[in-house]
Design a protein around this nucleic acid. Structure first.
Lengths: 183, 183
DNA sequence: AAGCGCATGTAAAAGGTTACATGATTAC
DNA sequence: GTAATCATGTAACCTTTTACATGCGCTT
């Protein structure tokens, strides 16, 4: 997959909001555990080191006596460019729900236009999925396994609701932007 | 996580329905790609080899001239026991949606009671999640990032719908079983 | 005195994907 | 004649988790 949202990228996106230490990031992610389960330190710190190597972030070391130094990471211009480039290219089709939500959070921070693009793209994908499901529905007969029928009904229900949600949100966001521009 | 649904286990569950070759499994999984993305051969064949090593499955080799032999895998008694034990212990909380759906498919094949247990357990978890979300809602103020508010609204909407869906399905399944028992 | 929060990190293992290797048969 | 489907597998790589290592300060 050319384009999954790895924690490396997500961390870069978070650092675009404000400089943070590894522990800060962990705490922030933990506070949003209702959304995405936060990565472990075993992936968090190496991810920061790798961003540092690529010059996508810089670090300011704040030494403290008898304790490990705090290390505050900030995004660089190179990092901002990389982030923008990544956000501009469409998310891989079939990407996970988690990837969609992660990107939703990052997108709102970059530009209103980018946010709309992201939501519209999601809408297009869910619509395709929805159509696929309806084709599958035709191929299902009474002999189909109960579990499969249930799973199918579940997925179809969720896809339908998600389409409604996306339409509603897109409507609201388009209107609010128009009114802002009219001001 | 003590209990994620790895492909290894899912394959074992599929073989409990009927003996299949690796390619058969791949084809079956592909036909359900609307549900779960099918594993690659690079994980499928090693998974089968490892099941074989643990005596959870046996293989019947059907040689064909000038072609790779077909290898039909069947679940053993040991395998059935392992599967039942695994299905009996509750799914890890915070398990992925994919894990829930995979198990849903397998559960329907084992026993009606097991299916109900699985769905009720899911209901309990989604209910907890739903409550958590309402607490988070209280902690959100107007200053909360737009993306986070949207992601929150998305997750809350979906959780609400899922609860409704689970209630509806549980209701139907309980009734249908009662009527069968009354016969 | 025990445990949690702070704060950083490393090493091993798990679990997967992608790309490669091989080769016949069938469909367009 | 070119591509897809059938059919098996291996090796290198990627990402992430789990468990370990260290140690201070605060609360119960």
């Amino acid at each position: 997959m050319a384009n999954a949202t790895s924690i490396r990228r997500f961390i870069l996106g978070l650092l675009a909001r404000q400089p943070m230490s590894g522990y800060d990031i962990k705490r922030f992610l933990k506070s949003m555990s209702w959304l995405i389960d936060s990565p472990s330190f075993g992936s968090l710190y190496p991810a920061l080191h790798s961003l540092l190597e690529g010059d996508l972030v810089t670090v300011e070391v704040i030494p403290r006596q008898d304790k490990p130094s705090r290390k505050i990471y900030s995004i660089t211009e190179t990092g901002k460019r990389a982030l923008r480039e990544w956000m501009e290219q469409p998310i891989a089709s079939g990407a996970s729900l988690k990837a969609f939500l992660m990107r939703l959070i990052l997108a709102s921070n970059l530009s209103h236009a980018g946010l709309l693009v992201h939501l519209r793209q999601r809408r297009a994908e869910v619509a395709i999925h929805h159509r696929t499901l309806q084709e599958v529905a035709g191929a299902m007969d009474a002999g189909t396994d109960l579990g499969e029928r249930l799973a199918f009904d579940y997925v179809l229900t969720m896809a339908t609701v998600e389409l409604d949600w996306l339409d509603r949100v897109l409507d609201q966001l388009s209107q609010s932007r128009s009114s802002v521009e009219a001001t």
